[in-house]
Amino acid sequence: MVFKRLLGALGVGGPTVDTVLSTPTVRPGGSVFGQVNLVGGEREAEINGITLSLIARVEVEYEDHEGHTDRTFASAVVSGPLRLAAGQNLAVPFSFPVPFETPATAIGGQHLSGMVLGVRTEVDIAGQLDKGDVDPLAVEALPVQQRVLDGLLALGFRFSRADLEAGHIRGTRQTLPFYQEIEFKAAPQYAHRCNEIEVTFVADAYGVEVVLEFDKRGFLSSGDAVRTYRLEHAAAQQDLTAVVDGWIRAAL
């Protein structure tokens, strides 16, 4: 059952809002479609505008501990000023683009535990900004990203976890204030050289940067090693297992 949320700016008897996503699953570079449903309250209301924002739960490092916070990484105004009569039903359709760097919450249809993304509806009513709840949004990996991950799995790497970290990866085209790390336990043939691999994708309209961070082991090669590679979107048309294998062998 869907409950319409009361807009708190006008209190009891005021209008309600309910945002419905017609595309609950998207891909980076695509668009979110849906509509904002408004129902007038006991009296007329002046709404100055409606804004939708993409929100992500991000891990932040402080001086003495780690924590999580919600970060807005994209927003779009979907309605200008409008007047909502008492009892009036009004639907505001919308579509807005999803940045290419948007992290995946699912890979091959499987949800990545710990990944929290959503769409927040903000209504400016009576000069007050009413920040609503976040409607969950699922994001599938781009085809070329999926090919890289398929290559790791084919080589015997085992998915471990994924998270979002605040910060910037040096030397990449990253524009968002955070990045995603997808962690894999090392395949048996590499276990003597590394413990795990963390994969980060920095995508744009032309392709994707693949950042591999290796947790290396061994007397002479302990510590982390980072390598960055570039793939065009067209690379999704081929099996990338051998390419990924070459990257790993060269790095280790």
Rank of each mutant, 00 (worst) to 15 (best):
R120L: 09
E232D: 10
A186Y: 01
G80T: 02
L6I: 11
L54N: 02
A203S: 15
F178A: 01
V32I: 15
A85K: 10
L152A: 05
N89D: 14
V208C: 11
T172R: 07
R120G: 09
P28S: 01
F219Q: 11
R5K: 09
T175V: 12
S95V: 08
D18R: 13
L82P: 01
G223V: 05
Y229P: 02
R230L: 13
P97I: 06
G127F: 04
G13H: 06
E198V: 08
E213R: 13
F219K: 12
C194G: 07
H68C: 13
L21M: 00
Q128R: 10
L176P: 00
D150K: 10
R5F: 05
L220H: 11
Q146C: 08
L153D: 12
D224V: 10
V119M: 03
L176A: 03
R147N: 00
G118R: 05
D64N: 11
E61T: 11
G167A: 04
D204Q: 06
I107R: 14
G156T: 03
Q237F: 08
F214M: 13
K4S: 08
I125W: 04
L6H: 06
P136A: 06
E213M: 08
S31W: 06
I169C: 02
V210P: 03
D133C: 09
E140T: 08
L164W: 05
V60H: 10
R161M: 11
F94N: 03
K131N: 09
G246D: 15
F94D: 02
N89K: 13
D70M: 14
N195Y: 08
Q189H: 09
S160R: 15
F96P: 05
V211G: 02
D124R: 13
G40H: 07
P97F: 07
L149Y: 08
G127V: 13
A86T: 06
N48C: 14
D130N: 09
P28A: 06
E44V: 10
F159M: 06
L212D: 04
P103I: 08
V226F: 04
T72L: 09
R230Y: 12
V119I: 14
R120M: 14
Q145N: 06
I47H: 03
D204H: 08
H68V: 14
G41P: 03
A74P: 00
R227A: 12
T241C: 06
P177M: 09
L220P: 07
F33W: 11
F94E: 01
V123M: 01
D204T: 07
D130S: 14
D130A: 11
E181S: 14
F219Y: 11
V210H: 01
T102F: 07
N48F: 09
T51W: 04
R227L: 07
G8T: 09
T23G: 00
A76S: 11
V119Y: 02
